[in-house]
Design a protein around this nucleic acid. Structure first.
Lengths: 293, 293
DNA sequence: CAGATAGATGAGTGTTTACTCAACTATAGT
DNA sequence: ACTATAGTTGAGTAAACACTCATCTATCTG
């Protein structure tokens, strides 16, 4: 019985998450051709199409969506369990889980200063869209997006969100009023279906659920679709400033809502005495101070 | 970064489930040597010991236990999702999930008559120790062990359990009374911790929790430990008659309790109209009638 | 003691995996 | 028209995988 390899499944998961073979290749440090080959091989093994190819981008088929959800979950369990066993001595490792978008765009860009200040310590960062379980995954800390009110947990604010609607430049020319914005194709995050409604509410407008709904499972997918001109995304402008600077997307209607949700550093109260937690708190406090200047 | 292959992880899971490289080799249709090599390679990759080797059997280390739980779960998700996509046309496939011990020892031994009577239909059987989810796993039916009272479900009795204490012949010589039985090393199923207490209660004896407790995660592991002379197992004698006939284990104290828990064929009420469910019910009814004669 | 059982180890080998490279196709933007 | 972008495809290749076979060690049982 022929079963896909774990490596192939990881490639599929990355491509599905990014909805881009190119981005997946970047993340996995392989060529786009390798991604293409593996996806094709996987589709041949399964005997179905996982991706629809159109113009210069890909989208998931329904079966692809189903498989992506399950493969992501299964792989996560395996990778996390394996990492739990292979990470070096507990005493000098800080184990963190964070949502992928925030991890790649905020946290990992600041690792240099951590390494410089704490050469004897190692950060083990894993990304996850699932709600993390401290015990089973042997984590010290978690970075979460939310309101900051997790029972039994201590939460430190890391980044206050600034949500702005953004879209591709060609589309931006026609979105100059709130009315036009409401009538456009809005890209939704399936994990927070009410986010657009809340945002409109905050700026004093009512908004009812659209009849045609485009939902994506994570911010990376939303951003890709946005850049591709599919619709308008609601994103934290602090995490997309590079794409903005490159002119690949731009904000519309000049409205911004702060603090609807934020990114917090979270850990159980019982972890307060851990050296790993104290070290990370010390470092991140300094980082946040530097940022405030 | 070197990550274990899915094939390796599946070999590890089978060896851990059976607590026997030989049995795992049988199940996977490879040589015991291949199992040994793969486990050693995996231990080298992870840099830890997963199994303790003693005499002629193996046991899991604590880390091995942790990894087994997670690997089993992760693999199950991947395998089930993949099987969901690769199974042929829905119309002529019956998708069943069953606990592994019952599946291998009762259900799969009767497949010949099914194939003979329904040549146009295919049985897709998957084994799982987790509670199955009909929608996510696209199942028609499930075979469960329990009391038969699952809300929203229709349950047909398949096999009434007959629990007897069994052990290796050498140990059996010293277990001739209930008192001796109580004082012996009893092997527990971690999924039903109270099973021994219930059993003793049913035969009119009180039994308090032992101070030294040997727990295993599934019946296969319990049987292996029992055959190896580790302790006394409480098993359904209908599912172990082969080992009994071979003299590898024998029952003790001549007590049997029926119907504490049983095996049921279970499906949601909404599945009643499925042709697949009707076909399977028809076949299993005939099988049960044949057995009653 | 002989035979059976179970896991371990080294060597060998064929197959599969996992890429890269080069060239191509189909857009989109200037 | 030219350039950039993104995915596709065929061919090639090195490494890894996944075994088998033969032999060994350490018990257990009759």
């Amino acid at each position: 019985m022929s079963f896909p390899s774990l490596n192939t499944l990881r490639t599929f998961e990355a491509a599905a998450r990014h909805l881009s073979f190119n981005r997946a290749a970047d993340e996995l440090c392989i060529s786009p051709s390798a991604v293409s080959h593996q996806i094709r091989q996987l589709e041949h093994t399964l005997g179905i199409r996982l991706f629809l190819r159109s113009e210069r981008r890909v989208s998931l088929t329904q079966k692809g969506e189903f498989y992506f959800k399950n493969v992501q979950q299964g792989i996560q369990i395996l990778v996390q369990a394996t990492n739990s066993l292979t990470t070096p001595m507990r005493e000098h490792t800080i184990r963190i889980s964070a949502v992928p978008f925030f991890a790649t765009r905020w946290l990992m860009r600041r690792l240099d200063t951590f390494q410089a200040h704490y050469p004897g310590w190692e950060l083990a960062i894993q990304t996850s869209t699932q709600k993390s379980e401290f015990d089973r995954e042997d984590l010290d800390l978690v970075i979460r997006r939310g309101a900051g009110d997790w029972p039994g947990m201590i939460a430190h604010l890391l980044l206050r969100e600034s949500l702005v609607p953004v879209c591709a430049p060609a589309m931006a020319r026609t979105i100059d009023t709130i009315v036009a914005l409401k009538g456009a194709t809005l890209l939704h995050n399936s994990q927070v279906p009410s986010e657009w409604s809340e945002w409109f509410g905050k700026i004093g407008h009512t908004f009812s659920a659209p009849t045609a709904k485009l939902e994506f499972q994570n911010s990376s997918q939303i951003l890709e679709a946005c850049i591709a001109g599919v619709g308008i995304a609601l994103m934290d402008r602090q995490l997309i400033f590079q794409e903005m600077a490159e002119g690949r997307i731009q904000s519309v209607v000049d409205q911004q809502v702060d603090g609807m949700r934020n990114y917090y550093l979270v850990y159980p109260k019982s972890h307060t005495t851990r050296k790993s937690v104290q070290i990370f708190l010390e470092w991140i406090s300094n980082e946040l101070e530097q940022m405030d200047r």
